[in-house]
Design a binder for these strands. Structure first.
Lengths: 213, 213
DNA sequence: TCACAAAATGGACAATCGTCCATTTAAATC
DNA sequence: GATTTAAATGGACGATTGTCCATTTTGTGA
């Protein structure tokens, strides 16, 4: 009556995806075998073929799911703040460097998939989608800021600011990947905002001051 | 007489390492099998065990070799330029973004290894060594610049500048990884120098102007 | 040129990989 | 409660993995 059948089915499907992500985070892609996955999901061997048609499809789906989770996390944050360009940028930077998003598990998963992206079209596509969505969000915010700042070529300025900001955030993620325990979130934020303030002194004056410098 | 024996031996050893790097670049780590390696090296199956004791050791050695190559490339560049802090920084940035160092093969290899670094102690160690050496080089240059600029806390400023610059370069590498064909080296350099100029206006005034902006 | 030894070969081997399907389980319907 | 059928099981399967060693090749020194 309540569609219990389908409910269980979907729960199992999700279990498989999460088992893949757990395994990739803990053991890496090359050690994420069918045996490893079904053991973590506590399901039988045949389920992967039944739900996804094969292991590769399951792994692709896990990559897609993971990308979506990231983007949703950032997007949810944006709805909790104001609508000015600088508020958006601040929220994205803070979010991207927050414990909720930048943590050991997510970073492990993200870099593991990226390492394989070049050789797996499906994974590359999700990786691109995530980046493009984020880039779009950031660019739109900077475009508003650049126009307010009266820049001569606001689009060009916004492009550079987007490129620089995302590159820096990317670099901070790498720092975290390599040394998660000594990583200093405040320092990372301070440096990003130093860059932002250099580009748009008036817009990011306050935000910089809020961080101990 | 000329030690021909040892010469051949060492050539074969190197062939195996380069076969691993080629395979990792083209097919990724998970598809780099013993069969794949010996086929590329045109050597027999037993050679891996003979020279390295096993496949894992060979892969670790290939990671070490690759890290060393990168660092040597940067270091060689530094000996072709002047000794001021800004000359060093400029050379490192230009080198790190140059075709010789930032190319499809190197980037593929680097990210593939990094994706597995978390689960393989040896690879993580080489990755760390490379980063630490580079960081040291960059920090020393910035420390000189910060002192010349009369900064109040030159070490702290140098630390931030190092952190920010390396994070940005890291991000540029990621851009290149994801879109090697549309990547614009000049734009990447322009953005990094924009950051540098914002931190040290006097020292990076000229270098920025040299790039079309 | 011959004997020695270091180096290289390539196949045997057990272990593990992912796929797939005949069978069993259990929810949904009558 | 009996019947139907979608969902889940788990083992068989061939292919491929990395290791290892008995054998062959080949450079070196006598």
């Amino acid at each position: 009556m309540t569609g219990r059948r389908q409910e269980i089915r979907e729960r199992n499907r999700l279990s498989l995806i999460e088992a893949v992500l757990d395994s990739v985070a803990e053991k890496g892609i090359s050690e994420t075998s069918v045996s490893e996955i079904i053991q973590r999901a506590e399901l039988s061997r045949g389920m992967i073929h039944l739900h996804f048609g094969g292991k590769d499809n399951l792994v692709d789906e896990a990559a897609r799911y993971s990308s979506e989770q990231y983007y949703n996390g950032i997007y949810d944050l944006l709805e909790t703040t104001g609508q000015t360009g600088q508020e958006h940028i601040e929220m994205i930077v803070r979010g991207d460097l927050s414990e909720t998003i930048l943590n050991k598990k997510n970073v492990s998963i993200w870099y593991a998939f990226r390492g394989e992206a070049r050789n797996r079209a499906a994974i590359a596509a999700f990786s691109d989608t995530r980046d493009a969505k984020l880039r779009n969000l950031v660019f739109n915010a900077f475009a508003r800021i650049a126009k307010e700042a009266g820049a001569e070529h606001p689009n060009q300025v916004a492009r550079d600011a987007t490129h620089g900001t995302l590159a820096m955030l990317e670099g901070m993620w790498t720092d975290y990947l390599l040394h998660p325990d000594s990583f200093d979130r405040d320092e990372a934020m301070r440096i990003v905002f130093r860059f932002l303030r250099a580009m748009f002194p008036k817009h990011f004056d306050l935000s910089g001051a809020l961080l101990s410098e």
